[in-house]
Amino acid sequence: MRYLLASLALLWATSASATSVAPRLLEQIVADADYVVVANIERVDMIDRRGRAVTDPEARTGPGGTNEIRFHLKVKEALFARSGAVPPTLVVPLWKMWHFTLGDMQEQASKEDSIFLLKGDRFEPAYPADFQRPMEEKARIKKLLAPRR
């Protein structure tokens, strides 16, 4: 698949026990973002509650679990930064409530450039869903960011 979002949507739709969040408009997610970057996912990893690497491809995240899946991004361009410079690489922790396995996320992660809408000191997703956007939305996102500059 071209974008991780399409894969995630398929995974969410097919999992009977999947956690879900209400849809949000792009305008709302951009408004909540502290950082908007063009980047690609260099790798996906998982850590346990103590920060130790988890390598089992069947290891899961989800309600009640303590594992965290993370995207390691290589930043190509910062479209917006609320404060300070954006580091050249970012580690983005995904929402722990999603029902995912490490192996599935590693297989589905696209190496293509995308736009990531992030917030806070940990560069978390600005919203648990739809924080990774296709490059085709760059002009629209820049237009939404214009009043914030």
Score class of each variant (00 low, 15 high):
residue 148 R to F: 10
residue 40 N to P: 00
residue 149 R to T: 12
residue 10 L to D: 08
residue 92 V to H: 00
residue 79 L to C: 05
residue 128 P to G: 11
residue 35 Y to P: 02
residue 96 K to S: 08
residue 12 W to C: 07
residue 148 R to Q: 02
residue 102 L to W: 08
residue 93 P to K: 10
residue 12 W to T: 11
residue 29 I to A: 09
residue 99 H to Y: 04
residue 123 F to T: 05
residue 145 L to N: 07
residue 33 A to C: 04
residue 120 G to N: 00
residue 130 D to Y: 12
residue 105 M to C: 00
residue 147 P to I: 06
residue 130 D to C: 06
residue 144 L to R: 06
residue 13 A to R: 06
residue 87 P to Y: 05
residue 68 E to C: 14
residue 28 Q to H: 01
residue 41 I to E: 04
residue 32 D to Q: 15
residue 110 S to I: 11
residue 46 M to R: 08
residue 88 P to W: 13
residue 19 T to Y: 10
residue 56 D to F: 02
residue 44 V to M: 05
residue 104 D to G: 00
residue 32 D to N: 11
residue 141 I to A: 04
residue 141 I to V: 00
residue 6 A to S: 13
residue 62 G to I: 06
residue 57 P to W: 02
residue 74 K to T: 07
residue 123 F to W: 04
residue 78 A to M: 02
residue 104 D to Q: 09
residue 31 A to C: 05
residue 85 A to T: 14
residue 92 V to P: 02
residue 137 E to F: 05
residue 72 H to T: 08
residue 136 E to A: 15
residue 12 W to L: 15
residue 116 F to C: 06
residue 9 A to Q: 13
residue 129 A to I: 13
residue 38 V to G: 07
residue 7 S to K: 13
residue 43 R to I: 11
residue 4 L to D: 01
residue 146 A to V: 04
residue 78 A to S: 15
residue 64 G to M: 13
residue 60 R to G: 08
residue 41 I to C: 11
residue 109 A to I: 15
residue 16 A to G: 01
residue 10 L to T: 02
residue 69 I to W: 01
residue 58 E to D: 12
residue 26 L to E: 12
residue 117 L to V: 13
residue 101 T to A: 11
residue 99 H to R: 07
residue 67 N to Q: 11
residue 102 L to E: 04
residue 93 P to T: 06
residue 105 M to L: 14
residue 33 A to Q: 00
residue 38 V to R: 08
residue 7 S to M: 13
residue 111 K to N: 01
residue 104 D to S: 10
residue 73 L to Y: 06
residue 86 V to P: 13
residue 106 Q to A: 03
residue 113 D to T: 03
residue 108 Q to R: 01
residue 111 K to T: 03
residue 118 L to R: 01
residue 37 V to G: 08
residue 7 S to G: 15
residue 111 K to F: 09
residue 86 V to K: 05
residue 18 A to K: 00
residue 121 D to E: 14
residue 14 T to E: 10
residue 111 K to S: 05
residue 48 D to A: 03
residue 116 F to A: 03
residue 107 E to T: 11
residue 58 E to C: 05
residue 112 E to H: 03
residue 148 R to Y: 07
residue 119 K to L: 04
residue 93 P to Y: 04
residue 97 M to R: 15
residue 131 F to Q: 04
residue 65 G to C: 07
residue 35 Y to F: 15
residue 75 V to H: 01
residue 27 E to F: 12
residue 51 G to R: 01
residue 51 G to C: 13
residue 36 V to D: 06
residue 75 V to E: 11
residue 134 P to Q: 06
residue 89 T to L: 02
residue 51 G to S: 10
residue 80 F to A: 12
residue 67 N to A: 04
residue 118 L to V: 00
residue 31 A to W: 14
residue 34 D to M: 01
residue 95 W to C: 13
residue 89 T to W: 10
residue 88 P to K: 06
residue 7 S to C: 10
residue 30 V to S: 03
